[in-house]
Structure formats: structure tokens, C-alpha cells
């Protein structure tokens, strides 16, 4: 298939960006979206032009690095996939595809489609862990009874790969689905409950410091999340913070 791509080009974090049109030809419908971008970049390099910078790593939907906003949706029009799992069969011959970086004040553009998502790392560092000394005398985790329901919900929350699609999709650039998932995955398990109050207080405080917007429960984050993280996690985070504050 032959496509027209409208891509956000931005020299560096300080430069003013703009949309630039490119043509790509003979794209196979079996290619992934990132493979199509590779074809474009080969064309650009062969012409002596600067290739389009974009994030990618595992290319199998696990690392959460690919971060494009394709035709007005994070990770493109398919559901439950990251950009690397998006296939060109989702588009038609002759389509014009708009490709932009994830937009949020807390996700500044570094170059072209690459954004700085270290704000997520700082939120995680504020409390997204368990302070257990694992030097040899720790109790075997399997000896602590955990209900199937709690274990399943914790595992569902832990599916979050921190890609930032929730922030990119939210009209308010809210990070509450990400933080809610991180708070929930520990709050649901006995190992995480010891530090639950400090965790939620510190992570929410860091989230607010980073300049993310406020959740207005539109549900866009849940729909666009490649891992199906539920809004239930935001409700749980709200309950956890209320509990921690009284």
C-alpha cells in the first residue's frame, strides 16, 4: 500500500516543531507500524535526510517505549496493543496517517516523536516499591495466604508497562491510571499493605509536582491502555489516599 504520512518533526526540546508530509510506497499490510517507520527512515537516510526519531525497544508490547499518537489515538486505532504491535492492515491504501508525539507538559518532546517520560520514573521512585530486606531471612512469599481475587487484581494492575498512553489520551493529561495501577498492585497484597499509606501519599504528591492534570473520569485512558488497566485502579487509589489521610 502507498501512504501519506504527516509527522511531527522537532529538532530538539527547545526547537519549534512542525508537521512534515512524507510519502511511503509498497508497504506490506503484514508490517508492524514501527517496521513501516523503519522503511520511511531508510528512504530518508538514502536521500541524506535526518531520519524520524522515535522510541522503541522490545517491539513485542512489553517495554512500553513506543509512544506515538497515531490518527488522534495513543498507539493508533487498534485496541489493547502498543504501537509496535499495531499492524499496517489497520490502514488502507492511499490513507493519510497523522503521527505525533505523546503530548503532555510532563512529557516534554526530546526530538521528533521521542518524549521524556522520566516523570513516571520519579513517581515510581517516590513509593512504587516495597522496602523489604531480602538479604536471606525473608519469609517465603508462598507462605502468606492471598485470596485468588486479590492476587488476580494485583496482577492485572501490575500489567501496566508505564508507556504513558493514559496520559496521552486523557484530555487533562492525567497520570492517575498509571499511578492508580502502581498503588493498587501493592495495596492489594499483604506485602505492600505495610507501607500503603506512605506509598499513596508520596506517589500522589510526586504526580502533582510533575504537572499532570486532574482526572475527570472520561475513561479515555482505560480504552487506550494497551494492557487493559481498569479505571477501578483510580477508584482504589482515591480510597487509599482517603484512608491514608484520616
Amino acid at each position: 500500500m502507498n501512504l501519506t504520512l504527516k509527522i511531527w518533526r522537532q529538532e530538539d526540546s527547545k526547537a519549534k516543531g512542525r508537521m512534515v508530509d512524507y510519502k511511503v510506497t509498497e508497504i506490506s499490510e503484514h508490517m508492524s507500524f514501527l517496521e513501516m517507520m523503519d522503511v520511511l527512515n531508510e528512504q530518508l537516510v538514502n536521500k541524506g535526510e535526518d531520519p524520524v526519531a522515535f522510541d522503541h525497544d522490545c517491539r513485542e508490547g512489553i517495554c512500553g517505549m513506543c509512544s506515538m499518537y497515531i490518527n488522534g489515538e495513543a498507539h493508533g486505532p487498534d485496541r489493547g496493543v502498543t504501537t509496535c504491535q499495531l499492524h499496517m492492515r489497520m490502514f488502507k491504501d492511499g490513507d493519510t496517517i497523522t503521527i505525533e508525539p505523546f503530548r503532555a507538559t510532563a512529557f516534554p518532546v526530546i526530538k521528533d516523536l521521542v518524549v521524556d517520560r522520566s516523570s513516571f520514573e520519579r513517581i515510581q521512585q517516590a513509593g512504587g516499591y516495597i522496602s523489604v530486606n531480602t538479604s536471606g531471612n525473608t519469609q517465603d512469599a508462598n507462605s502468606i495466604p492471598i485470596s485468588k481475587h486479590a492476587a488476580d487484581e494485583a496482577m492485572d494492575a501490575a500489567m501496566c508497562i508505564g508507556c504513558g498512553a493514559c496520559v496521552a489520551s486523557c484530555k487533562n493529561s492525567s497520570a492517575m491510571l498509571f499511578v492508580g495501577a502502581k498503588v493498587s498492585q501493592y495495596a492489594l497484597l499483604p506485602q505492600g499493605q505495610v507501607e500503603a499509606a506512605d506509598r499513596v501519599r508520596n506517589m500522589v504528591a510526586q504526580m502533582d509536582l510533575e504537572g499532570f492534570g486532574n482526572c475527570t473520569n472520561t475513561g479515555a485512558c482505560e480504552i487506550e491502555c494497551p494492557k487493559g488497566i481498569s479505571l477501578e485502579n483510580i477508584a482504589r487509589m482515591n480510597r487509599e489516599l482517603m484512608k491514608a489521610s484520616v
Partner: peptide
């Protein structure tokens, strides 16, 4: 929280 809007 989003100073530059999406084109699309």
C-alpha cells in the same frame, strides 16, 4: 498540563 494541542 498540555500546552501544545494535538494536530489530530
Amino acid at each position: 498540563a498540555r500546552q501544545i494541542a494535538y494536530v489530530k
